[in-house]
């Protein structure tokens, strides 16, 4: 499945990954490659474990089988200290923003710097204001985390994710629940950061249009398998019915509108047994 021609340029390589939660198989032997400096999107219906994939790449969850190489290092065989060193070079944007609620915006963005560097307060201030300026929220630096709207919180989290100048950044559902303007702002920011900082970006999303607009390469995952991959244009041309249904958002298709159930008429006529 992996594009073998681009191995040299691969920053993250997931191979033969399997993972299950309880009895449910989340991933069944999937392989994905993420190219350096590109935006790669992972799409699929809700509940296909896209966030789980990011947590596996970040080393927070252990896979059952398979390996994840990030910049040549096997994430799940690193010692804790080395994993932490690697994580300093990985940014992650959580769906909720995951801002620390007992701090204001400035301290949130400064947090990784204060934890990991011995920079002076004035240098920290400069860096933080630069990153906040990049996401357009320099003016909000004294607000507390809970005073922000969802879109603003995500932008602050983005500033925090890039404050250590990582090599890559993982976006977990960056567009979910945003109004059109915040959505536009985020799309623009992700694209701009990718260009100006050369960040390798992974976007996990089910917002087809926004993601297709900025992604360089797309994987579509369903029921633990990669069901489609390619550039946005290739995906749109795909002859797979499933991919077409997902991209156009049709209500019925290979993915049925109805949750599996017994026959409708039988169910209605049966003697109201509770189950």
């Amino acid at each position: 499945m992996a594009n073998s021609d681009s191995h040299l340029n691969t920053l993250i390589s997931v191979s033969n990954l399997s993972f299950s939660r309880g009895n449910k198989k989340i991933f069944d032997d999937i392989s994905l490659d993420f190219e350096r400096g590109k935006i790669t999107a992972i799409m699929g219906p809700s509940g296909t474990g896209k966030t789980t994939l990011l947590k596996i790449i970040g080393g927070q969850l252990l896979p059952e089988r398979g390996t994840v190489l990030v910049d040549g290092q096997n994430v799940h065989q690193l010692r804790r200290a080395d994993l932490f060193t690697l994580r300093k070079r990985m940014g992650m944007l959580f769906q909720s923003g995951a801002l620390l609620t007992d701090m204001n915006v400035f301290d949130n963005v400064a947090f990784p710097l204060r934890e990991h560097t011995k920079l002076t307060e004035s240098m920290i201030r400069t860096l933080v204001l630069m990153k906040l300026e990049a996401v357009g929220l320099r003016g909000a630096c004294n607000l507390m985390a809970n005073e922000l709207s969802g879109g603003m919180a995500r932008r602050v989290a983005l500033a925090r994710a890039i404050v250590l100048d990582p090599m890559m950044i993982m976006y977990d559902e960056p567009f979910t629940g945003q109004d059109p303007i915040s959505m536009g702002v985020l799309v623009h920011l992700i694209k701009a950061l990718n260009k100006t900082l050369g960040l390798t970006s992974i976007i996990v999303s089910h917002d087809v249009h926004e993601t297709a607009a900025i992604a360089d390469y797309i994987y579509i995952i369903s029921e633990g398998k990669v069901v489609g991959q390619g550039t946005p244009d290739e995906i749109k041309q795909s002859d797979s019915e499933w991919v077409q249904q997902f991209m156009t958002g049709a209500a019925d298709g290979p993915v049925h509108f109805h949750y599996p159930a017994k026959d409708y008429l039988d169910d209605l006529l049966s003697s109201g047994k509770r189950y």
């Binding site: 927070q60 300093k88 959580f94 801002l99 947090f111 990784p112 934890e115 990991h116 925090r160």
Partner: peptide
């Protein structure tokens, strides 16, 4: 979780 991903 976010803290862990920030290597804290």
């Amino acid at each position: 979780s976010g803290m862990e991903m920030m290597a804290v």
